[in-house]
Write a protein that binds this DNA or RNA. Structure first.
Lengths: 122, 122
DNA sequence: CCTTTCAAATTACAATTGTAAATTATACTT
DNA sequence: AAGTATAATTTACAATTGTAATTTGAAAGG
């Protein structure tokens, strides 16, 4: 799995949301949201592109349009799993118990989750 | 919250497990487990100590005994929350749904969790 | 076609991190 | 007290990362 840094991830997230994005969209959004310099954002786009995490799919004038080359779902689950491994010795159950203990999660939440699953099963 | 790097965390985990640990215990364990050089491990111990994440509590000969100065529970929940924020837009429920979708979590697991909570409630 | 503009690419640079060698200082041995 | 072993501390160093300035190259206007 391609490794993406925190700053790069911010760029990737934009592209995931839109499926297809020009450098300008990315710059616009992140300049605002993160108060990053345009140059900074371009560096991140470049690094992602060099890593193969995103791919330029078209060119309009001098402006590229990118699409993600790694799936959000896969990336996100990988990262999640790796946290479970790092912090909970690989036990997802322990993670959940911790969330319960810390009141991030309660019985109602869990019931709700259960219901959602039931609904989808059906 | 004191920031701990991945390598440093390995040291911290040893100390958490034992409550109180000599540099030698740490070195012994990590030399084996991670195949790190003793020097490397000492660097990590030092960095943690400088950060205040661990504290030397006694000295036998030249050897220090350390204890953790940040709580495992707190550290772990903080890191967990920060992943939820980073990857799931802060929604723990979305994280859980993702685990379900990826088959890391199923109905039985959730039921089990529910039962555990019920048992503790009582 | 030549110039200008501006997107893209390259270069920069300090801080952090993983990894370890070199040096220092201190407890024990003789 | 002097010498030695060795734990601790300091220094090192390349790779990565966050952040951005500088340079290049190609599209668009005259």
């Amino acid at each position: 799995m391609i490794k993406v840094t925190d700053a790069e991830l911010e760029v990737l997230k934009i592209i995931w949301e839109k499926e297809k994005t020009t450098s300008f969209d990315i710059i616009d959004i992140l300049k605002e949201k993160k108060e990053w310099n345009e140059s900074t954002i371009r560096t991140l786009i470049n690094r992602l592109s060099k890593k193969g995490a995103i791919i330029p799919v078209e060119k309009n004038g001098k402006t590229y349009t990118y699409k993600a080359n790694i799936s959000k779902d896969e990336y996100v689950i990988e990262e999640s799993r790796s946290l479970v491994k790092k912090l909970y010795n690989g036990s997802l159950k322990n993670m959940l118990l911790n969330f319960v203990k810390q009141k991030d999660l309660n019985k109602e939440d869990i019931q709700e989750l259960m219901d959602l699953i039931d609904k989808e099963d059906k």
